[in-house]
Amino acid sequence: MKTSRGESLTPAEVGRLGERVAKAWIRAQGAKVLACNFRAPGGGEVDIVARQGALLLFVEVKTRTREGFGRPLDAVNRDKRRLIRRGANEWLRLLGRRDFPWRYDVLEILLTDGERPRVNSVENVSLEES
């Protein structure tokens, strides 16, 4: 992925761009973005916390600039799942209740020069230890 000046984006820039695409996609689906890059004390993180009707979404965003290196979902390994679980549990703790529906999703973002970003939503991802 290149900038308008023809320079390659850094991995951090690719990630930020992917998260901007993800937020726009989530909003286009009728959901409300509640928080971005939520960090829990003592470890734990969630890229995007959103609400779609009564459903709370904890969304991990994985962005790639080319195919062929495996599916972005595959990068959500055991350690990453643990961080997402901790972040989501802290969010629920701060709300003071867990009696409403929620789920974990992964948004796979593919950014290719000259093309519209592609988004694949993987809903209700299991974050259990494997």
Results as ranks from 00 to 15, higher is better:
Thr3Met: 13
Thr3Ser: 13
Ser4Trp: 13
Ser4Pro: 11
Arg5His: 09
Arg5Pro: 00
Gly6Cys: 03
Gly6Val: 03
Glu7Asn: 08
Glu7Asp: 15
Ser8Lys: 12
Ser8Val: 09
Leu9His: 14
Pro11Leu: 07
Pro11Glu: 13
Ala12Phe: 12
Ala12His: 05
Glu13Gly: 14
Val14Tyr: 04
Val14Phe: 11
Gly15Phe: 01
Gly15Ile: 00
Gly15Met: 04
Arg16Gln: 15
Leu17Asn: 05
Gly18Thr: 02
Gly18Phe: 05
Gly18Met: 08
Gly18Glu: 06
Arg20Ser: 10
Val21Phe: 04
Ala24Thr: 00
Trp25Lys: 02
Trp25Val: 09
Ile26His: 05
Arg27Pro: 03
Arg27Ala: 11
Ala28Gln: 13
Gln29Asp: 04
Gln29Ala: 06
Gly30Ala: 10
Ala31Ser: 03
Lys32Tyr: 06
Lys32Glu: 15
Val33Lys: 02
Leu34Asp: 09
Ala35Gln: 10
Cys36Arg: 08
Phe38Cys: 07
Ala40Glu: 00
Ala40His: 06
Pro41Gly: 02
Gly43Val: 15
Gly43Ile: 14
Gly44Asp: 07
Asp47Gly: 07
Asp47Arg: 00
Ile48Val: 15
Ile48Glu: 07
Ala50Leu: 01
Gln52His: 12
Gln52Asp: 11
Ala54Lys: 15
Leu55Ala: 11
Leu57Glu: 15
Phe58His: 15
Glu60Met: 07
Thr63Pro: 09
Arg64Gln: 15
Thr65Glu: 11
Thr65Ala: 14
Phe69Tyr: 13
Phe69Cys: 11
Gly70Pro: 00
Asp74Tyr: 05
Asp74Ala: 12
Ala75Val: 01
Ala75Phe: 08
Ala75Met: 09
Val76Trp: 14
Asn77Cys: 04
Asn77Asp: 14
Arg78Leu: 10
Lys80Trp: 06
Arg81Tyr: 03
Arg81Ser: 13
Arg82Thr: 15
Leu83Glu: 12
Leu83Pro: 03
Ile84His: 00
Arg85His: 12
Arg86Gly: 14
Gly87Arg: 03
Ala88Asp: 05
Ala88Tyr: 02
Asn89Met: 10
Glu90Met: 05
Leu92Arg: 15
Arg93Phe: 08
Gly96Leu: 13
Gly96Cys: 09
Gly96Asp: 09
Gly96Tyr: 11
Arg97Ile: 02
Arg98Phe: 06
Arg98Trp: 11
Phe100Trp: 08
Phe100Met: 04
Pro101Ile: 10
Trp102Arg: 14
Trp102Asp: 08
Arg103Val: 14
Tyr104Asp: 01
Asp105Met: 11
Asp105Tyr: 00
Glu108Trp: 00
Leu110Val: 02
Leu111Thr: 04
Leu111Asp: 08
Thr112Ile: 12
Thr112Gly: 04
Asp113Gly: 13
Asp113Ser: 10
Asp113Tyr: 14
Gly114Gln: 10
Gly114Lys: 12
Glu115Phe: 03
Glu115Leu: 06
Glu115Arg: 14
Arg116Trp: 02
Pro117Lys: 06
Arg118Trp: 01
Arg118Ser: 15
Val119Ser: 11
Asn120Gln: 14
Asn120Arg: 11
Ser121Phe: 10
Ser121Met: 06
Glu123Thr: 06
Glu123Tyr: 06
Asn124Glu: 02
Ser126Trp: 02
Leu127Tyr: 07
Glu128Cys: 07
